[in-house]
Simulated assay, not measured.
Amino acid sequence: MDQDQPDWNLLRAFEATAQEGSLSAAARRLGLTQPTLSRQIAALEDRLALMLFERNGRYLHLTDAGRELLPHVQDMGDAANRLSLSASGQQSDLAGLVRITASEVASAHMLPPILQSLRLRAPQIIAEVVAGDDIRNLMTREADIALRHVRPEQPNLIARLIAERKGYFYATTGYLDKRGRPETLADLAEHDWIGMGDLKRVLEYMFSLNLPITEDNFRVRTESGLVAWEMCKTGLGIIPMDETVAAGTPGLEKILPDELVVTFPLWLVAHREVHTNPRIRLVYDLLGEALG
Rank of each mutant, 00 (worst) to 15 (best):
S117D: 09
P152Q: 06
A80F: 13
Q90G: 13
S92H: 14
Q154H: 14
R141P: 06
H149L: 14
D78P: 07
Q154A: 14
A80M: 12
G57N: 05
D75S: 13
V73I: 11
S84R: 10
E104V: 10
P112W: 11
I145C: 04
G77S: 10
V150S: 14
R141T: 10
V98C: 01
P155G: 08
L118Q: 02
L94R: 00
A143I: 08
S84P: 08
E104G: 07
G66T: 02
E142T: 09
L83K: 12
A131K: 07
A127V: 00
R148E: 07
D75F: 13
L111A: 03
F53T: 11
A108P: 03
D133P: 02
S117R: 08
M139D: 13
R67N: 09
S107E: 00
S86E: 11
L83T: 09
V105T: 04
H149G: 12
R55V: 09
V73T: 02
A146F: 06
V73G: 06
I114T: 06
M139P: 07
S86V: 05
H109E: 10
P112D: 09
A106L: 06
S117P: 06
R55K: 12
Q124S: 13
Q124H: 13
Q90R: 10
A131C: 07
A143G: 04
V98K: 03
M76D: 04
G96V: 00
A65D: 05
Q90T: 11
N56G: 14
A131H: 05
L157K: 04
E153P: 11
Q116F: 05
R121S: 01
A131R: 05
Q91L: 14
G77F: 03
R121Q: 08
V150P: 11
L118Y: 05
R119I: 04
I135H: 09
L111M: 08
H149K: 13
